[in-house]
Nucleic acid binder design. Structure first.
Lengths: 189, 189
DNA sequence: GTCTATAGTGCGATAGAC
DNA sequence: GTCTATCGCACTATAGAC
């Protein structure tokens, strides 16, 4: 038992989500979030490099997981197949229980271009990491980067679909369907 | 002859590029850029919504052009083919003479994640616009979005390749090769 | 934890162009 | 008279330096 309540980061993240939903991202100051959990603004910025980052907690872990899943995927004939099997494994990061939280977060992101920018950068970083893994596995360029980027595109669209109000299938299943669709779209040209 | 030199925006853009190359993006203040062309900091922010935006001049026009090129593409059997022919047309925005400027700009972007975020958002906006155009042309979902996103991925990778020091082919030619590679990567799965 | 520079906004005033 | 570009000032929040 220390001098502070434990879990400063996660308490800040929760408070931030609430406040952003209530009053909007721009209308909420970092100091306000910190105050709500009894911390100082200075402490907020020690936990998060900038205000946006409070909405991206756990994203480094997800990123590592996603890249590791591709690295550990069984040897396959096609690089995109390798990416697909990695993505399927990483889908466990988003079980049904996470849908509600993800939808709230998505609503906030949808209203703020600066947050969308950050989300895109995170995705781009994952794509870049997957590309590197594929090259390590002997896939030449530009196939490695194309497979990585296409895989992330499939993931993004599947994820958005997963969040839709009328959607109930698990993420991995939507991913599979989306990969099939990609095959059809590209084959048709 | 007015009270002011004409072309405030473009003079600010040029000065910004110089200063960013000399001292870096973070080390250059908006006031400094404005001062160099005889304007005030306040005026800088009336031309550009934020500091990053000074590096994205003409991007709205490029965006419109890209989307219009897809909208005006001849009727084709496949949505990705339509996107490809649109992209080929829009490649004229980047003639050989623009390579030098583009490389300078790319070097600045490469050193700053915040600028990469903005670049990704601009690309995402174009993809979204192309997706809408495809839906207007009768392409169902998720094929429309997949074709749009895949097309933008091809454009991005082709553009990066176009900027490589050892690369001399025109952008349109690299795009074509990249579309072929995408076909191979996806077909192989 | 305090102190400070920079980013970015709001508003009023001014100077020309049409 | 109206429209547009500019300046100047006051102000807040972010973010980094000390």
């Amino acid at each position: 038992m220390g001098r502070w309540e434990p879990g400063g980061s996660s308490r800040l993240r929760e408070a931030a989500l609430e406040l952003f939903l209530e009053q909007g991202f721009d209308e909420t100051t970092a100091g306000e979030i910190a105050q709500r959990v009894g911390l100082s603004e200075r402490t907020f910025f020690r936990h998060f490099g900038d205000k946006k980052e409070v909405l991206f907690g756990g994203s480094e872990e997800f990123q590592r997981e996603m890249i590791a899943a591709v690295a550990d995927a069984p040897v396959g004939p096609s690089p995109l197949g390798v990416v697909a099997s990695g993505l399927a494994k990483a889908a466990r990061f988003f079980p049904d229980e996470a849908r509600d939280y993800s939808r709230k977060r998505w609503r906030i992101l949808g209203e703020n271009p600066a947050l969308q920018e950050r989300e895109l950068l995170k995705m781009a970083a994952i794509a870049s990491g997957i590309g590197a893994v594929l090259r390590d596995r002997g896939v030449p360029e530009p196939a490695a980067t194309l497979a990585a980027e296409s895989g992330i595109t499939v993931f993004r669209l599947a994820f958005e679909r997963w969040l839709a109000p009328d959607e109930h299938r698990p993420l991995a299943e939507i991913e599979r369907a989306m990969f099939v669709e990609l095959g059809a779209v590209v084959a048709g040209s």
